[in-house]
């Protein structure tokens, strides 16, 4: 029995049809081990959210997983029927979205909302639902759960709404939580509280977390394993210490280098354009984000992921192999 709770292999996701096919995710492999937090980091448009949606099979109607496999708990997600998926969503895998306002029903008391998953998935007597809801509210840090139970989403602040979403997400005690930029819209003090709640749940239940983010600070504090995504592909992966101590891909270096430090005094901030493979000793290899676009119709052919040290994978781009797209 493997230690891997979620294992994605060679996943390809495309949108559109005919001439207008757009490959959002190409040849993506990642895994989340039991009891661990894996971070999928990248900027807008890199395909990280699409990847997380495909795990729950909730891609937008014009998108589809073309090939590859997504195994969760030794079951193949891509071959599951809608009915089987309904047993998994919210029950074994739950998701926390970025936009707490859009994720809550404005016309329903939050206490009722957090028990909806329980009503559907677990055999719990109606009379007990309120007790369970109150205890969930307490778990996510509300000191007055009975008062919060009767509130509507519009009566709560952004951080409180995000905590309601967490209460909802952990209500059925899922094995995997997918958190898609759960704190992007929040202030730092609230961000800290929300991320700590997710981390606490993970430790308490020995659950796993797949964290989607663009913030390397968050990755450094909460992740065990890191996947850096660019242009629909994983460009570098490894455990969090390796990625921070020995990043190789220019894009990874750029994402780390562009965080302003609060301790050393301000040299210039670096960006992805300031790094090349040359300095890491990979001659003739180039990473050129500006040419890697559908617009210019040219991109440098990426090599497959190369294991540069045990457990540390990097995707190099070969300057000699230029492909003209469609």
């Amino acid at each position: 029995m493997s230690n891997r709770l979620l294992e994605i292999n060679n996943l390809n996701i495309a949108f559109g049809s005919g001439k207008n096919v757009f490959n959002a995710v190409t040849d993506l492999s990642l895994s989340v081990s039991k009891g661990q937090t894996a971070a999928l980091i990248g900027e807008s448009g890199s395909g990280k959210s699409v990847t997380s949606l495909s795990v729950l099979k909730i891609l937008p109607a014009n998108g589809r997983a073309e090939s590859g496999s997504i195994r969760f708990d030794d079951k193949e997600i891509l071959q599951m029927t809608e009915k089987e998926m309904q047993k998994i969503r919210g029950n074994e895998i739950s998701m926390i979205f970025q936009d707490a306002i859009a994720s809550l029903n404005p016309a329903m008391k939050v206490g009722i909302q957090i028990t909806e998953g329980l009503k559907y998935h677990k055999q719990i007597a109606k009379s007990e639902l309120r007790t369970v809801a109150l205890s969930l509210l307490e778990q996510v840090g509300f000191h007055n759960p009975a008062h919060i139970f009767d509130q509507y989403p519009s009566q709560l602040s952004g951080g409180m709404k995000q905590r309601i979403l967490i209460a909802m997400a952990i209500s059925c005690r899922p094995k995997l939580i997918i958190a898609d930029e759960p704190t992007t819209a929040l202030d730092v003090t609230i961000q800290r509280q929300v991320l700590d709640l997710i981390a606490d749940y993970k430790i308490r239940e020995d659950a796993s977390v797949l964290m989607i983010t663009h913030d390397f600070g968050v990755v450094a504090e909460y992740a065990d394993w890191v996947y850096v995504m660019f242009g629909g592909r994983i460009v570098e992966s490894g455990d969090v210490f390796t990625i921070f101590n020995n990043p190789i891909h220019p894009y990874t270096k750029g994402l780390i280098g562009c965080i302003p430090s609060m301790e050393s005094d301000s040299e210039r901030l670096k960006s992805v354009y300031d790094y090349s493979f040359e300095e890491a000793g990979y001659k003739g290899r180039k990473f050129a984000p500006e040419t890697y676009s559908m617009e210019s119709k040219v991109y440098h052919a990426p090599s497959s992921l190369i294991e540069v040290e045990p457990g540390h994978y990097v995707r190099l781009f070969d300057e000699n192999e230029v492909t003209i797209v469609g």
Binding site: T189, G217, V219, E221, Y222, F244, I259
Partner: peptide, 15 residues
């Protein structure tokens, strides 16, 4: 103080 200590530090050694 709270504000400063809430910022994630981009260094896993210090988590």
């Amino acid at each position: 103080k709270s504000l400063l200590s809430s910022i994630p530090i981009a260094d896993p050694e210090r988590r």
